[in-house]
């Protein structure tokens, strides 16, 4: 479980938000929405333990990410995956390299199993055989999907994704919704930051979400929900 207590953030001498309380349970898919420039990406970074909030604290699995030992914050980050809104396309770098980095950051997996998982994930993302494609040649939607596949390779307990659904494109919305619900059923926590709540997705408690400062927080209904 990830809990944010009275967190606040200041950017360029402007208070983006303050006194926010949020909780993301295990086995839950949450979508944080808000207009451009309201600090969604920053919120994700704060929740991941990457950027100390200007006020408040974040506790993950009972451990404070900012007041506890740095190793514990590091362990939390190691157990989480992150799909950024965009990642720099390094000349000559391929999808294989991205997977390699993800594998390096994760548990050691036998080569045969790694290969199978890579192929499965790329197929799932509609990009079979893309392993040797250059990152610079990918479209925005392909980059979003391949970044998600690279994160899923490690099987993270927590997944943070910034504008993933929007970047992946409308035709992938349903598939991603199903995928995140499946992850939640396995007890994993998925936190998404989007401008708007994806169409066709069903939020718990009506669909209006809960107002949290400049954001709205939506929780996705997960059939057969695990509360573990």
């Amino acid at each position: 479980m990830i809990e944010a207590f009275h967190v606040g953030a200041v950017s360029r001498d402007r208070t983006l938000w303050d006194g926010l309380d949020m909780a993301f349970d295990d086995g839950e898919v949450c979508v944080v929405t808000g207009p451009a420039g309201c600090g969604k990406s920053l919120l994700l970074r704060v929740l991941r333990g990457e950027r100390r909030p200007d006020a408040g604290d974040v506790v993950a699995g009972g451990v404070s990410l900012y007041r506890g030992a740095p190793e514990e914050a590091g362990a939390f980050r190691a157990a989480s995956g992150v799909v950024p809104e965009s990642f720099p396309s390094v000349a000559g770098r391929s999808v294989r390299d991205l997977f390699l980095l993800s594998e390096t950051a994760g548990e050691r997996v036998p080569e045969k199993e790694r290969k199978e998982r890579r192929e499965e994930l790329l197929s799932l993302m509609g990009m079979p055989g893309a392993l040797d494609w250059k990152l610079s040649s990918l479209s925005v939607t392909e980059r979003a999907r391949v970044a998600l596949a690279a994160e899923l390779l490690r099987g993270p307990k927590y997944l943070f994704a910034d504008m993933l659904v929007a970047n992946a494109g409308g035709e992938w919305t349903d598939m991603l919704g199903g995928l995140f619900r499946a992850l939640a059923r396995e007890g994993k926590t998925v936190v998404l930051a989007e401008r708007t709540f994806p169409e066709r997705w069903k939020a718990r408690g009506g669909g209006e979400g809960t107002a949290k400062g400049p954001f709205r927080l939506f929780r996705i209904a997960v059939p057969g929900e695990s509360t573990a």
Binding site: R48, P70, G74, A75, R77, S80, V82, F87, P88, A105
Partner: peptide, 13 residues
């Protein structure tokens, strides 16, 4: 450096 940032973001000091 970008690749090392990737690893750092994923908990490798």
């Amino acid at each position: 450096s970008g690749d090392f940032d990737f690893l750092r973001d994923r908990g490798i000091p």
